[in-house]
Simulated scan of single mutants.
Amino acid sequence: MDDRAPTTPEEDRVTTFTHGGAQLVVAERGTGGRTFLLVHGIGMGRRVFGDLVEQLSPHGRVVAVDLPGYGAAEEPIRIPTIERLADLLAAYLAAEDRPDGDTIAIGHSMGSQVVAELAARHPGAVDRVVLIGPTVDPAARSALAQLGRLAHDLLVESPTVLLLGAREYVRAGPHLRRKMRAMLVHRPELVYPRVTVPGLVIRGELDVVCPPAWCRQVATALRAPLVEISGHGHETMIRDAAPAARAILADLGIQPVDT
């Protein structure tokens, strides 16, 4: 059964959406026909997109979600696969009364896998995809390899990113290992050729989680441009989202607004 219920306002307009036993927590800001759907990575939540929301909200409605078991969303009975997370987002998009206009799905890290599946499994659900720091590089498809790369990447990040990331990982709960497994067994390289909407790939110049060769492979499979953010690592849209926002807006032909 589908269910949309308001929650106590914490920020913006916050609601919950439940479908198939899994819950999304949804925060909205901005208005207009264009919708930016923000999907976080493993161990994170919608709050890591705070700066990106600020940058994008002058240009449309921004919808940031907590996936099941992350942030404020309830822990599901079973850990959803990447495919099931995509199905949940598709159900949410189908249930909401969206204004006419494009929906741009933006996924960071594991969220890029969810966004790609959403576009591939549910044609017409979104009009464009943006993959920021796309995972999982097939050359490092193990928890140990991924955690090692992430730890190395965090060396270039700011204390703000480290503090926020640590808090969100704690909120992700005791099932993070199983959530990591769900991410690692998914093979995004098999999904990209099935994505028919326009795309954009963004990586931080210093991102060791998503090396240049892998991101070029992703961009080629999506038939999409690749933009590299100078001086940034894997968490490029957390530390300073302005460069990533400019790349997203430029891809849409939109002039950024100073915030």
Rank of each mutant, 00 (worst) to 15 (best):
L162V: 14
M110E: 06
D153F: 01
A247K: 03
K179T: 10
G111I: 04
D137R: 07
R194V: 01
L155I: 02
I202V: 14
C210G: 15
P243I: 02
V156C: 13
G111S: 04
Q217L: 07
A120D: 11
A120P: 08
G233I: 00
H186M: 03
T160P: 06
D127R: 02
R141S: 14
E189M: 15
Y169V: 15
P211K: 03
V227T: 10
H108T: 08
L147W: 13
A172M: 06
S112T: 02
D240T: 06
A143M: 12
A116K: 11
A221M: 11
H108Y: 01
G199S: 02
L118Y: 02
L118E: 02
P188Y: 00
V170Y: 11
P138N: 01
A241T: 09
V115D: 08
E235C: 13
V197L: 05
A105K: 03
V126Q: 09
A224C: 08
S158N: 08
V195A: 05
A242F: 10
V218R: 04
A247Y: 06
A182W: 11
Q113M: 12
L200V: 04
E205D: 15
V126H: 07
K179D: 09
L155A: 14
A143K: 13
E117S: 07
L164S: 09
S230M: 01
D240M: 06
R203H: 08
L150Q: 11
V197I: 05
L190R: 15
M183I: 06
D207W: 05
R121I: 04
R203G: 15
L162C: 08
R141F: 03
V126R: 06
L162Y: 05
L190A: 12
L154C: 12
Q146C: 13
V201Q: 03
S109R: 00
A119W: 09
C215F: 00
G124T: 06
R187K: 13
V227E: 13
R216V: 10
R178G: 09
L200F: 06
G111D: 04
L144E: 15
P174A: 07
L226T: 12
S109G: 10
P134E: 00
H232T: 11
L190V: 01
V115T: 06
G204E: 04
V136Q: 08
R216L: 10
R187M: 05
K179S: 10
A245N: 03
V191D: 01
L147T: 05
Y169C: 07
G165N: 10
M110K: 10
P212R: 00
D153T: 01
R187Y: 01
G107E: 07
A139G: 04
D153G: 15
A166L: 12
V126P: 10
L150N: 13
H122E: 02
E157F: 02
P193G: 11
T220E: 08
E168F: 03
H122I: 07
T135E: 14
H234W: 10
V201W: 00
P211V: 00
P243V: 02
R194F: 03
P159W: 00
R223Q: 13
R149E: 05
L155F: 06
